[in-house]
Each structure stands twice: as structure tokens, then as C-alpha cells.
């Protein structure tokens, strides 16, 4: 027991358990009014406490679905459903995932490109940085429909519009991180390059770029998570293409709270997996670059 507590597993389990208990309790409390109405309509007067609690945890469209209902829905809609079917959450998740990854790749490239320009040219920092910052102050919810609908009008639909929204969100942390990263080399390291009469490209490829790699990964961890948000928000504006965002939207139209929660959890799980994947790539690169373990 003591060993368990000393590790990571036990504290996490305890927190999970607490959240679960709180959730079940909240489900009783939030679903009770509607359950009472239902029981009155059905003419059931004397429902025992245990039975009543059971009822609040098994409604069709509960205000707050109980954890096991969400878990059941996730299971049914992934493992229990053909992956090619439009009812499969795995199918929708894969649509969101491809938009996320494409947008993330584009955003990272754009971010790196802008950072390189900014670091090599002082004037471009003064002219570009305000616009880059301003771009992030505009609510994405306002921009997403314009992009999706606008591009749809000229015949661009499917993955690309959503990916563009992901890119719009994810390039920002990459620019900020890489501008800092490309500037980390110390004066003495740059002087060394000068004594070799190195070309600007050599200074970039042999000094600035490798020095910036840790900053790149830190930015990419933020970038990949908000890429997913961008893709989901993009899907909210166009329910033809499918994706987790569409599941959220149809779920809320139809009051299918269980479906909403299931889609939410899949999205959160996806984000976690993506961040972990970037972290794994980071460790691999670190090892190749001789970082202290």
C-alpha cells in the first residue's frame, strides 16, 4: 500500500475514484426532477430510494448521463459498430484526426517559416508580430464559419477548410516558441561561427536550428492539442462531412446527451494520445541529440 502511494498510480486512481463518485452523485441530483415528473406521469407513487437512484442513472436523455452510460455508448459506437458506418465514433474520430494532423503539419510549417523570417530580419519582426498576435485575438468561432462556408462556395470542401482552421490556431505557439528558440544561441557560440566565416545558412542549420529543437517540441505539444479544437470547431460549421464536431452538434440538436458526452470523451482521449505521441517523438529526438537522460 505504501509503495502504491509512493508511485504515480495510486494518487491518479484516488482522484479518478473521487471524480467518479462525485459524478454519480451529481447525476442523481441533476436527473431527479425529470425522473420525478416521469414517475408521476406513469402513476408510480411509491418508488424506493434505491430504485429511484437506479432510474436516474439509466434515463434515455438524461441531463447528466452516468459514467457507465457514457462508457457503454463509447463501447457500442466504436468496438460494437462497423467502422465504415456513419454511426461509428471511430469513423468520425478518424475524420477529425486527419483534419487535425493536416492542419497541425501546415501550422507547424507556417510557424517555423514565420519564425525564421522574423529572426533573420528585424523589420519583419516589427511588421509581422502585431498581426500574428492580432490573429489570435479574433474568436475562432467567428472565423470558422466564414472559412468553411466561404471555401465551400468556391468548391473547396472536406478536409482542407477544417485543416486551415487548425493551422490558424496551431501556427501561433510555434512562431512564438521558435522565435525564442532560434535566438537561444549564446553570443560566444555565434562568435565561433563568425571566426569560421560561416555562411548564414550554415549558422542556421548547424547552430540556430538544433538549438531551437527543444522549443519546437514544447510548442508542438500545445499546437497539436489546439489543432484538434480547430478541427472540431470547423466541423461545427459544416455537418455534411462528419467528424466528432458533427456528432456533438447532432447530439445537441436531438438532446442526445449520452452521444455528446461520448464524443467529448473520444475527443479528449484523442488529444491526450496526440500530445503523448509528440512527447514520444521528443524523447527520441532528444536521445539522438545526446540530451542528458
Amino acid at each position: 500500500m505504501r509503495q502504491l502511494l509512493a508511485g504515480k498510480t495510486a494518487p491518479i486512481l484516488i482522484v479518478l475514484l473521487a471524480i467518479g463518485l462525485f459524478w454519480y452523485a451529481a447525476a442523481i441530483w441533476m436527473n431527479a426532477p425529470w425522473q420525478t415528473t416521469l414517475n408521476q406521469r406513469a402513476g408510480l407513487d411509491s418508488v424506493g430510494a434505491t430504485e429511484f437512484i437506479g432510474q436516474t442513472w439509466s434515463q434515455d436523455k438524461p441531463v447528466l448521463p452516468a459514467p457507465h452510460q457514457v462508457a457503454g455508448e463509447i463501447w457500442n459506437a466504436t468496438v460494437g459498430t462497423d467502422i465504415a458506418s456513419k454511426r461509428s465514433l471511430a469513423y468520425h474520430a478518424s475524420i477529425t484526426l486527419s483534419a487535425t494532423l493536416l492542419g497541425f503539419a501546415l501550422g507547424t510549417l507556417l510557424g517555423i517559416g514565420l519564425a525564421v523570417v522574423i529572426v533573420h530580419n528585424d523589420a519583419s519582426e516589427r511588421s509581422l508580430m502585431p498581426w500574428i498576435i492580432a490573429s489570435q485575438t479574433i474568436p475562432i468561432l467567428a472565423i470558422a464559419p466564414m472559412v468553411v462556408v466561404g471555401l465551400g462556395a468556391v468548391g473547396v470542401t472536406g478536409l482542407l477548410p477544417k485543416a486551415l482552421i487548425s493551422m490558424y490556431l496551431s501556427f501561433f505557439p510555434v512562431v512564438v516558441g521558435m522565435v525564442k528558440g532560434l535566438r537561444t544561441p549564446e553570443a560566444i557560440q555565434l562568435d565561433l561561427m563568425h571566426t569560421y566565416s560561416a555562411t548564414p545558412w550554415q549558422v542556421f542549420s548547424k547552430l540556430r536550428w538544433p538549438a531551437a529543437i527543444p522549443f519546437l517540441f514544447a510548442s508542438m505539444k500545445v499546437g497539436i492539442a489546439i489543432s484538434l479544437i480547430g478541427a472540431v470547431v470547423g466541423e461545427l460549421s459544416n455537418n455534411a462531412g462528419g467528424g466528432l464536431g458533427v456528432r456533438l452538434l447532432t447530439g445537441s440538436y436531438n438532446g442526445q446527451t449520452i452521444q455528446i458526452w461520448a464524443a467529448l470523451f473520444i475527443a479528449a482521449g484523442l488529444a491526450a494520445v496526440l500530445v503523448i505521441a509528440v512527447g514520444a517523438a521528443e524523447r527520441l529526438v532528444n536521445r539522438a541529440m545526446g540530451a542528458r537522460p
Binding site: 549564446e186 560566444i188 557560440q189 562568435d191 565561433l192 571566426t195 569560421y196 566565416s197 548547424k206 547552430l207 538544433p210 538549438a211 529543437i213 541529440m289 545526446g290 540530451a291
Partner: peptide, 15 residues
């Protein structure tokens, strides 16, 4: 490339 310069700190590239 007439000279080699040794700085006060080693200035090795850690990667």
C-alpha cells in the same frame, strides 16, 4: 581562415 580562436568558455555545441 588564418586563426583558430579558443574562447574563455568551451562553447561546445551540446547536441
Amino acid at each position: 581562415r588564418a586563426y583558430g580562436y579558443v574562447f574563455q568558455a568551451p562553447a561546445l555545441y551540446p547536441w
